[in-house]
C-alpha cells in the first residue's frame, strides 16, 4: 500500500501547513500574543473631551506602551468622558498625581493617552483614578481660536 501511505503523508502535511498558516497569522500578523500574555489592572481618568480616542488605543508613558484603553463612556452628570485603561501589571508604580493627556501620533496618526508621572510617593492601585487630565486638542477648535485671536489683535 505504498500509494496510500504517501497520500496519508501529503494530507497530513497539508493539514499541518494550514494550521501553521493560522498560527503565523495569529502571532506574526495580528497582535494576539501582545494581548493574552500580560496581566493588567484598570485605572480611570476623566477627560473634558476624549477626541478620537478608541477602545484599544495605546496608553504610553515616556513613549513606551504600558497598556491600552479598555472602555470609554460618558458620565451622565458631569458630561465628562470616563476613559478606563488597562495597564500591564509590571508597571505598578505609577504615582497617584500622574497627569493623563490625549495626544495624536503624528499629524494624521491615531490618538493615544500619554501618562506623565508626578512626584507622589503613593502609587495608583487597581480601579484608581487619575485626577489631573488634559483633553484632546481638537484641531478645528484650535484653528478657530487662533483666527479669533488674530482678528482681535487687528482691532
Amino acid at each position: 500500500m505504498q500509494h496510500t501511505s504517501t497520500q496519508d503523508t501529503l494530507v497530513g502535511l497539508f493539514v499541518a501547513a494550514g494550521i501553521t498558516a493560522l498560527f503565523f497569522l495569529a502571532l506574526q500578523v495580528s497582535n494576539l500574543s501582545a494581548l493574552t500574555e500580560k496581566d493588567s489592572y484598570t485605572i480611570t481618568a476623566r477627560f473634558e473631551n476624549s477626541g478620537g480616542l478608541k477602545v484599544k488605543s495605546p496608553v504610553s508613558a515616556a513613549g513606551v506602551k504600558i497598556g491600552q484603553v479598555s472602555a470609554i463612556s460618558l458620565d451622565p452628570k458631569t458630561y465628562e468622558a470616563v476613559v478606563k485603561m488597562s495597564i500591564y501589571s509590571q508597571y505598578n508604580n505609577i504615582p497617584s498625581d500622574t497627569t493623563a493627556s490625549v495626544f495624536t501620533a503624528g499629524l494624521l496618526g491615531e490618538q493615544y493617552v500619554s501618562l506623565e508621572p508626578g512626584g507622589s510617593e503613593e502609587f495608583l492601585k487597581n480601579n484608581g483614578a487619575i485626577e489631573i487630565t488634559q483633553s484632546a486638542i481638537i484641531l478645528e477648535k484650535a484653528i478657530g481660536q487662533f483666527l479669533f485671536k488674530s482678528a482681535e489683535e487687528k482691532k
Binding site: L22, L25, A26, Q28, V29, S30, N31, L32, A34, L35, K56
Partner: peptide, 19 residues
C-alpha cells in the same frame, strides 16, 4: 511592514472572521 500590521490587525475581528 510587520509592526504596523500587528498593531492594526486583530486576531478575532479580522482573522477569525476571515476563517
Amino acid at each position: 511592514y510587520w509592526a504596523q500590521m500587528q498593531a492594526k490587525l486583530d486576531f478575532y475581528d479580522d482573522i477569525i472572521n476571515g476563517v
